[in-house]
Amino acid sequence: MLATMSLSARRLVIVSGKGGVGKSTVSAALGMAAAGRGLRALLIEVASQERMSLLFDQGGPIGYHETPVYPGLDAFSIDPEKALEEYLVSQLKVRAMVERLVSNRAFGHITAAAPGLRELVTLAKIRQLVDRGRHDIVVVDAPATGHGLGFLKVPRNFIRVTHTGPVHARAVWVAGLLEDAERTAVVIVTTPEELPVTETLEAIADVDGQGVPLAGVIANAVFEPLFEPGDGEALAAVPAGGDAGAAAAAARTRIARTADEAEQLARVRRCLGVLPFLFEPRLDTAAVAGLGERLARL
């Protein structure tokens, strides 16, 4: 019955998806929806994107610490360099040595290129923030990998190439939370366009049976129904030009795109919810809160 378990009952909700589909917006909306239910929610962004500071009008970066952004909702921006430094301190115990180490150029080169290390320390920091228990639910705006759910597979990759040692132990510890369907849910955000939907379907196929607790898909920026069947014909005879021609042209565009969107949405499986396309010139906190209300029943 895990598939029908609500998102807000999980400790960790990871929001993934292709770049440009509105992942950060949906993450923020999920966080606000959880806060709206009276849960203490934490919104995490990774790789220092600092999108939340814009969405919540912070007037400055969120930073590597809890920052209250909305009633019941805190935000935290994970800088992988800082997470790595913290990890080193926990392993090496001596802070002075860590400081010498991170300023060592050779070490910088290795960690910059070491495949997946930044992702692993970021995920470990996420687990630490979940385990600390100051929040009922943690929502993560995962990085756009461009390649499905690569971010979530990093611990498995480390477990595969290492068999012992601290990194192995760390990867096992992280995977223990990530792959626990009772505590963790992964949500993929898509827009109703061919490429994002195709990548979403590929990501689902890619993780099916791989231990990733995929809850489902949220379709974002979908035109709300406005025109009715037959409206297109009623507008077809309007001559081009002038205010009437302009209105008819805009209507044709919306009707055509709505039909394309319906075709793409029909391909989406395991759809958890649909969020409307917003015409507001700028997405502000109130607009995101409105989206959160649409997700409240998740």
């Binding site: 080193l88 040595m97 290492t162 068999h163």
Partner: peptide, 10 residues
């Protein structure tokens, strides 16, 4: 430090 981090095998 890298060895402490990664383990000998890696």
């Amino acid at each position: 430090a890298v060895e402490r981090l990664t383990g000998t095998e890696l």
